[in-house]
Simulated scan of single mutants.
Amino acid sequence: MTKLRLSLLAFLLIGLLAACGEGAATTAPTANTAAAPTVAPTYEVDDPAVTDVPAAATTAPASGGAVDPSKLSPELRVFAWGEYIPEDVPAKFEEEFGVKVTIDTYSSNEEMAAKIRAGNSGYDLIMPSDYMVALLAEGGYLAAINPANIPNLANLNPENLGLYYDPANTFSVPYMWGTTGIAYDKTVVTPAPDSWAVLFDPAQVGQYKGRVSMLNDEREAIGAALRFVGNDINSTTPADLEAAKAALLAQKPFLAKYNSDNVYQDLASGEVVLAQSWSGYTGLAMVDNPNIEWVIPKEGGVIWQDTMAIVSGTPNQYTAEVFIDFMLRPEIGASVADFTYFLTPNTKAEPLVSPELQALYAKLVPDAATRTRLEWLRKGDNATLYSDIWAAVKSE
């Protein structure tokens, strides 16, 4: 694989999001309780190029400004997707600020949302995907973010901001983005697939029985089934969802598992040779298994963006905003990209991404024709219908 030039990477990033027309991913602790802040060292933003930062109070972490140690809490509790934060990042934050970061993980937006909606989750910061930001904000579960405390917002690509789910970025900050499609082992799955039919048509998927997986994600799995049967990926029409349910039930006997946690490991090892997957997970599998290939089906795939958002009512909002700002530092953003193999929205992190990952982007970033087939998952009306369909599929 050849090394991609940064300019190409930036062009593809802008083109993908613009083409989609939307510019402009364990047991909870006890509930948060207010505590005396731990004294932490002050710091200055070490990138002198950070400009155009909103005016802020003297306590805000701005370019040349400092964090106010008296406002920091002794602990920050984060609820995130599995394997989404590099292992050394919490320790780096604690070393610099004296704040212990506890991270618990979830496998789907719905799993996370159920705990947040139940109340007293104990979490300060979560990482909802685009459509879930809209749902949680609508329900009053997210706090409005103070951008004055996050000067590194200036590092984000404008094309990743102002999207449909949070037009003013009132409640969320972009973390990573990517696409959803099909990963397959080219030495086993032949001919090369170009349609969701390879996962849903019994005559096709049956050839790989027991070596196939789908994402353990109700919106992703049902969305793929909706596209296979020829319906809108965000449809909430009962008849459309029943058709998707039937496709999922017909598919189920051929599956090895539903897996959103480590599908890349299954693909790399050969345990699974055909999978609905996220682009970053596919990239991770490609590193260990060069036979893994990636395709966005002709019927259409998904474009998505995961975010950082603060749980409404947390007494640790300032600390959460300092953590978000920390995650938006260029070197931390690059570290996250290299760890997850997803696409970074951080333009200043792009030059720091490893050459190996930049080379993989040649396979993972879609071309112009493919970009026209990518859709956002949206919250829609009667969104609970998806949960009902998914529960029925999983229970049979």
Rank of each mutant, 00 (worst) to 15 (best):
G210H: 10
L153C: 02
A168H: 05
P41G: 15
G15N: 15
R373A: 05
T307Q: 08
R329K: 09
P330E: 05
D325Q: 04
E87H: 10
A192R: 15
P74D: 01
V272F: 03
N169H: 01
L249V: 12
A250L: 12
S277Q: 06
T344Q: 12
Q305P: 00
K92P: 00
G64C: 07
V273E: 06
V229Q: 12
G223N: 06
L343W: 12
I303R: 00
L364A: 04
D47H: 04
K245I: 02
K209C: 10
T344A: 07
E271H: 10
P238E: 05
Q358H: 08
D261G: 04
M176W: 03
A183T: 04
T314G: 02
Q317N: 02
P147K: 03
L385Q: 09
I182P: 12
E75V: 06
L226Q: 04
I310H: 00
S335N: 09
V50Q: 01
R5H: 14
V50I: 07
A168E: 07
A24I: 15
E218V: 12
G210A: 10
D367R: 05
M327H: 11
E96A: 11
G65Y: 00
A221H: 02
G210M: 11
K394Y: 10
Q358N: 11
G162S: 01
A250I: 14
E242G: 12
A62I: 11
A337F: 01
A114D: 06
R371L: 15
S269T: 14
Q265R: 07
D240N: 10
L255T: 02
A247H: 02
G181F: 14
M286Q: 08
P366I: 15
M132C: 03
S387Y: 09
E95R: 04
I103L: 08
N291D: 13
G270T: 07
V263I: 11
L255D: 04
G230P: 00
N120P: 00
E22R: 14
E87S: 07
L226A: 04
T187E: 11
V133C: 08
D88T: 15
F339Q: 06
I233G: 02
A137L: 01
S395M: 13
D130C: 15
A368I: 15
I292C: 03
A143L: 06
S335L: 11
D185W: 14
L156S: 02
D194T: 15
G300H: 02
L274V: 06
V322F: 00
V101H: 04
V302T: 14
L13W: 11
M286S: 07
P158A: 03
N316V: 06
A309Y: 05
T372Y: 06
E242V: 05
W294H: 00
A391S: 14
E356Q: 14
I303L: 05
R373E: 04
T30S: 11
D288C: 00
F79A: 10
P290Q: 04
P355V: 08
E271L: 10
N169R: 05
I126W: 03
